[in-house]
Amino acid sequence: MLEAATGWLTAEEWEAVRLSLSVALRSVVFGLPPAVLAAWLLARGRFPGRSLLDAAVHLPLVMPPVVVGWLLLVTFGVRGPVGSLLNDWFGLRLVFTTGGAALATAVMSFPLIVRAVRLSLEAVDQGLEDAARTLGAGPFDRFFTITLPLISPGILSGAITAFAAGLGEFGAVITFASNIPGQTQTLPLAIYAATQTPGGEATAAKLAGVSFALAVSGLLLAEMVSRRMQRLLGRERG
């Protein structure tokens, strides 16, 4: 099947698929820990500025992606406040790189993960955490042995949804990381490039098909994993 796909897509198109997968995967891997932390703060934290954090987390959902990309460019650009430091200290440049594409994707899909994790955190019976406390478990112990396993279905379905959405991130990526074949040209960018090229309709259609298939399988997988996990956690009997 891989052979057939390799033959069916040109090397350049294949590169766009591979890059999309890589960017989406990285965005999820790096986005997950802060997303779980943000979800925990929003679900459990009682601190001033909580609604501000809530709004900030959800901004990428409601802002035009181009604006998110532009904000990233301003912040993480080589002259930006964060970008210049990263460049000076670590020689790390995010603009116009695969890493930058992953960062832009991570920011865009961040609310999706936070939302899923937060919902499952709010569904966790805090009585179980209390029970763990009385059995001698401290805060970190409790989080890793009770809370984390119980919210793992939420984390996984959030991660898979974010991955599927990340495969198709366009506006923020093209603004922040540009459209460089082999570096930042993910599937949607390649599709866009194809539509701008005379005679590129066939390529666009092919890539759109791939994109569609990936997104659908991602959603199905998320649903399946979540059900399987719920069953493992013994929730089906309430």
């Binding site: 019976d125 009585g127 179980l128 029970a131 009385t134 009770i146 493992l232 956690l233 013994g234 929730r235």
Partner: peptide, 12 residues
């Protein structure tokens, strides 16, 4: 040690 009315066994 606490035994709660709703047992609170860890489901996982």
């Amino acid at each position: 040690g606490v035994v709660f009315q709703d047992s609170r066994l860890f489901p996982h």
